[in-house]
Design a binder for these strands. Sequence first.
DNA 1: AATTTCCCCAACCGCGAAGTT
DNA 2: TAACTTCGCGGTTGGGGAAAT
Length: 351
Amino acid sequence: MGRAPCCEKNGLRRGPWTQEEDQKLIDYIQKHGYGNWRTLPKNAGLQRCGKSCRLRWTNYLRPDIKRGRFSFEEEETIIQLHSILGNKWSAIAARLPGRTDNEIKNYWNTHIRKRLLRMGIDPVTHSPRLDLLDLSSILSSSLYNSSQIDISRMLGVQPLVNPELLKLASSLMQSQQENPKLGFPQTGQENHLVPNHYQYNQIVPDINPPCTIPNFSDEAQLLLDPNVEQFSSSFNNFSSQIPPLNDWQTNGDYVPATLPSYNYNCSFPDQAAAIMDPSSETSSTFMSNGSDHNFSFASALSTPSSSPSPLNSNSTTTYVNSIEDERESYCSNNMLKFGIQDTLDINDYMF
DNA sequence: AATTTCCCCAACCGCGAAGTT
DNA sequence: TAACTTCGCGGTTGGGGAAAT
């Protein structure tokens, strides 16, 4: 396959764009559209390669681009989609109106990824990191019957493990002991044990047949419920009992008392295809678009009332508080994700 | 106040896919 | 169908501003 000799060194400008160049590009595209990026710069009188022009237009000059920082809903959408799609930034961007793949990619790498790491979650697999799984393995063995475990001290890994996760693991084990039937939370069952955001509120693949258990490690499964069948049927029962999404569409302060911890059921491959196809009706409730609270994940549910409120509802949002700090706190208290299974190769369903 | 370090993000690069001849 | 062109994607870089020393 031949390759376009893009960005030849012969006299073409590189680096940051000037206002004049931007204006030339805007003027030209408004007048003629952008049919052929290769010939565009020449026709527009720009000393740039077509690639550079396309990038500048799609990532910066396009009139429908939303500037400003990401909202909570947008951020959660990114995380949700990333757990399914991986680094398919363009596919993720297609679900976030006004955001570019480049912007999302940057935001992921500079903010979300770091935060997940600090939370002890692998940003690639969206699963607890190995050190945590080792921890749960220990918990599920000889120490299982000990209700009060100073895990941090026992392991001597405190600096490496998110204390919230340790508490969670301890709580889970204790609760399982108290109520052996309490495994994977049943639909409609209030679940105080597992943070409601980052648990099964992912798009849960409902693969049939058979129902594939998400690819937690063995240890992680033990943490939740060693009974795989119960776990499996929870998924199957879930879809018929899930409340209407609209019931959960809130102003961000209301959290239903009997909130299912997983609130979106996805039957592959249809939903996966829908995700990939922003125009699909089937995925419309899946989408967040800033002012529209049709967002159906846990964002509205788990967003604490102390969430910084935008000063205005415009796309350029200014937050009263340090949103980054609040998100940090918010995430570490409410997010724990056991992500979409690795064995589910979404690419199998894509095209 | 000066210097260094850190962090963010716009832009670039290389590759593969899709389209065209 | 092979050769070539164009486009779009994901990974990476480096300039510049902010924060730390």
